[in-house]
Simulated scan of single mutants.
Amino acid sequence: MTQEAQQRYAAGDRPGEIRRHELAGFLRSRRERLTPEEVGLPRGRRRRTPGLRREEVAHLSAVGVTWYTWLEQARDIQVSAQVLDALARALRLDAGERAHLFGLAGAVDPSPAAGCATVTPELRLLLDQLAPFPVCVQNSRYDILAFNRTYGALFCDLEAVPVEDRNVMLLAFTNERWRASIVYLDEVLPMMTAKFRATMAGHLGEPGWKLLLQRLTEESAEFRELWERYDVQQTSTSKVKHFRNAHVGPVSFVHTDLWLGGDRAARLVTYTPADDTTRERLLELERLAAAR
């Protein structure tokens, strides 16, 4: 608790007011520690403010300057999960800082960074034991909640991707290395979008889904065009998929979903080799992933 918040607490201020001042102080401290160069902005000659200016944070997070200023002034305003997510990304918060931001705002973090009770230590051990087969755990929103090292090297260096960006839909539309690994991309993306729309019908209004849809429509013109078609398609349990791995070349897998609960909230996504060539290349990919 900041010194100002402690003083307010001692003076008998209400918890809500104390929380707003804590949030304001936290945002200000995170803003002041970032340099313009770190976020791709010019420094300019006359910069007296340490770190970023308020208007720069507002620009990076696509919110109004006045609104963001009120937030740092501890005004009594409502903050949505979408705005908090944008601020967390603009200020480059790590997982702990992001959780603190949502906690101070009294909001629920809808991203996979908030954790998932489905991924137990035993399940993580199972993922590792299934190597060299690429395996991950996804929820119904296509967030990648956990994965083994072979899966982490199949499409791109997944470990280098921020946790809040580890979503199959987001990666397929915005991550160039992930996109380059998908054979028949022009056929795959419409199918993915149609499945996403069909699945989202059961989650309308949920913050996490709204946040993901907002990011996809803002960051990908290709997704916007496909989304406007209103195509729907139900998920299938098993199919052959073809990829172009940057390390070992073309590979083909049988993709199978194993549901982890009766509510179909999370599933084990498995890739087993569809041919002998893939089996051999998969062993090489596992060796390279282990060496890294």
Rank of each mutant, 00 (worst) to 15 (best):
M1V: 13
E4V: 15
R8A: 14
D13R: 13
R14W: 08
G16S: 02
F26Q: 01
L27N: 09
L27D: 01
L27M: 04
L34Q: 09
L34V: 07
T35F: 07
T35Q: 13
T35S: 15
E37P: 00
E37S: 10
E38F: 02
V39Y: 02
V39K: 03
G44H: 02
G44I: 06
R54P: 01
L60E: 06
S61I: 00
S61H: 00
V63I: 10
V65S: 11
Y68L: 09
L71G: 03
L71K: 06
E72A: 07
E72R: 07
Q73G: 10
Q73K: 11
A74N: 10
D76E: 10
Q78R: 13
A81W: 00
D85G: 03
A86S: 12
L87H: 01
L87F: 05
R89F: 02
R92A: 11
G96I: 05
G96K: 09
E97D: 04
R98Q: 07
H100N: 04
H100P: 03
L101Y: 04
G103N: 06
L104T: 01
A107Y: 05
P110E: 08
A113D: 12
A113T: 14
A114R: 12
T118F: 08
L123E: 00
R124M: 04
L125S: 13
L126Y: 03
A131P: 06
C136A: 14
Q138E: 12
R141F: 03
D143V: 02
I144H: 06
I144R: 08
F147I: 01
T150L: 04
Y151E: 13
L154H: 07
C156N: 14
E159D: 15
A160R: 11
V161R: 09
P162W: 03
E164A: 12
V168L: 13
M169D: 03
L170K: 12
A172L: 10
T174P: 11
E176L: 13
E176T: 15
E176Y: 08
R177V: 15
R177D: 15
A180I: 02
S181G: 01
V183T: 14
V188K: 13
M192E: 03
M192Q: 12
M192P: 00
M192G: 00
T193A: 15
T193N: 00
T193V: 13
K195N: 11
A198Y: 03
M200A: 15
M200P: 05
A201M: 12
H203Y: 14
E206K: 11
P207W: 00
L212T: 07
Q214Y: 11
L216T: 06
T217W: 11
T217Y: 11
E218A: 15
R224P: 06
E225R: 15
R229I: 08
Q233Y: 10
T235H: 13
S238K: 14
K241L: 11
K241Q: 08
H242Y: 11
A246S: 08
P250V: 01
S252I: 01
D257C: 08
G261F: 05
G262Q: 11
D263C: 12
D263W: 09
D263E: 14
D263H: 11
A265F: 11
L268E: 05
P273K: 07
P273Y: 03
A274E: 01
A274H: 06
R281A: 07
L283T: 12
E284V: 14
E284D: 13
L285Q: 09
E286F: 13
L288M: 09
